[in-house]
């Protein structure tokens, strides 16, 4: 029973990780590519970490919970890196399927002398 649950968690986590990378590989522009890794990959690795936590807690003596730390860390840092990457892409005017709002370009033009 436990083993089945663990197996499902592991396979689902790996599938989400793959979907995240698939999004990175096949989406047409940078801003759409950003979505796969920030959401699907984070959730996939989170699911793997929870599986690892359950496995080591039931395996030998004592519970194991430091996996929570990495999960939390990933869930906090993924949106931060996504925001910074997106900001950098807007700054460099990476080509996009739709035009970014006018405010961005105006502020950016003012910022760089």
């Amino acid at each position: 029973m436990l083993e089945a649950a663990l197996s499902i968690l592991i396979v689902v986590g790996a599938i989400f990780t793959l979907i995240g990378s698939l999004g990175l590989a096949r989406m047409p522009d940078f801003y759409s590519r950003l979505h796969g890794p920030t959401k699907a990959t984070t959730l996939g690795v989170g699911s793997l970490l929870i599986a690892s936590m359950i496995y080591f807690s039931t395996q030998d003596d004592g519970i194991s919970f430091h996996e929570i730390l990495v999960t939390l860390f990933l869930f906090i840092t993924a949106p931060v890196s996504a925001h910074l990457l997106s900001k950098a892409a807007l700054h460099l005017r990476v080509k996009s399927l739709v035009a970014p709002p006018r405010e961005v370009e105006e502020a950016d033009a003012g910022e760089c002398k």
Binding site: T17, G20, S21, L24, F30, R33, L34, P37, T41, T42, V45, L74, A78, S81, L85, A88, A89, L92, V94
Partner: peptide, 14 residues
Amino acid sequence: DQPDRILALDTLYV
């Protein structure tokens, strides 16, 4: 582009 490569590197870490 450069942001694409950085994003890929970040994903590779994860």
